[in-house]
């Protein structure tokens, strides 16, 4: 078996230099990104969070050329801002320079969501244990990422915190194993878990509040090429002080729930309809309301056995 070179093989200076010059080429699941930036915060966070990811070269086929750059002119110095670019196109408004790494993460999500139409893309966390995968589609604020981080720290393989990638032909789930984006109180909740965790820098005052990224486990990143068949779809909702409640969802409701959380169902049209039909046919579907960590972990443990 060939050993893959990871970013851990580079020291901080080398990472910083590659980011500044031609760009750092990294495999992120089935995609290859070339990342460029001269910002120290990008170099620090990439080294901290992406250490286990496969390092590639400019001879490899690159899907996305992305960069985080300071704008020219006054806003380079006065309340400095930064822009995200994909192939010299900037899809977002500039953000304060302190938000460089979250902007890079959001930008990478944007690249995949806008271009990877050979997959059905769902706004969803995806994890796997004992060969059984769970898809957790949810809108922002439902506690999806917190739940995803809890599961990832309790023996589940992380496929994705943000996006389910379902192959249109094989119906298999592809993994991204990107950093888990945690917001506000979730950061404390996960930091207080009795597990070894590595976080990126904590960034305050973003549109989503305080943000920090949790490094994915080495195993999850190493197994990123392992696809898995969908096993269960769980629509999670955190509700403070409520006992856990799990209900089987009828398939038609689950179908519509999946569509609501899809980035590209309408673009895929007939292929999207067929992919969702196939997904619903092959999975058990539940809604889940929870507040207790122990209860929710026990539920997922049962699901995996």
């Amino acid at each position: 078996m060939s050993t893959k070179t990871t970013l851990n093989s580079l020291n901080a200076y080398e990472i910083s230099q590659q980011l500044r010059n031609d760009g750092l080429v990294v495999a992120v699941g089935p995609f290859v990104f070339c990342i460029k930036s001269s910002l120290a915060s990008i170099a620090n966070n990439v080294q901290r969070i992406y250490g286990d990811f496969q390092l590639l070269s400019h001879h490899d086929l690159i899907d996305f050329y992305v960069s985080i750059k300071k704008p020219k002119g006054l806003r380079r110095f006065i309340k400095p801002q930064i822009n995200f670019y994909c192939d010299d196109y900037s899809p977002f408004l500039p953000l304060p320079a302190s938000q460089a790494f979250p902007l890079l993460e959001w930008g990478m999500n944007w690249c995949i969501a806008q271009h990877a139409h050979h997959h059905l893309l769902l706004h969803s966390a995806v994890l796997e244990k004992n060969g059984k995968s769970v898809i957790l589609p949810a809108q922002s604020g439902s506690g999806k990422s917190t739940l995803c981080a809890l599961l990832a720290l309790n023996g589940w393989r992380l496929l994705s915190d943000e996006m389910a990638l379902i192959d249109l032909k094989s119906n298999q789930l592809h993994a991204l194993a990107r950093p888990i984006s945690l917001k506000n109180e979730s950061i404390n909740i996960i930091q207080q878990q009795n597990c070894e965790t590595i976080f990126g820098e904590i960034v305050d005052d973003t549109n989503k509040g305080t943000i920090s990224h949790l490094k994915p486990s080495k195993v999850s990143v190493q197994q990123v090429e392992n696809t898995v068949a969908p096993y269960a779809i769980v629509f999670p909702k955190y509700q403070a002080k409520q006992p856990i409640q799990v209900n089987a969802t009828d398939k038609a409701t689950a179908f519509m729930g999946v569509i609501e959380n899809s980035f590209n169902y309408s673009i895929l049209a007939e292929a999207g309809f067929k992919a969702v039909s196939q997904l619903i046919d092959s999975t058990q579907c539940h809604t889940l309301t929870y507040s207790s960590t122990e209860e929710v972990l026990a539920f997922f443990e049962e699901l995996a056995h």
């Binding site: 009828d250 398939k251 038609a252 409701t253 179908f255 569509i259 169902y265 007939e270 309809f273 067929k274």
Partner: peptide, 22 residues
């Protein structure tokens, strides 16, 4: 029209409008 049948419902995809109805 494309349809998918479930016990109590049918999901209908209309490629003319791109809409899906339960």
């Amino acid at each position: 029209l494309l349809t998918k049948h479930y016990d109590e419902h049918v999901i209908v995809f209309d490629p003319n409008t791109g809409q899906t109805h339960c």
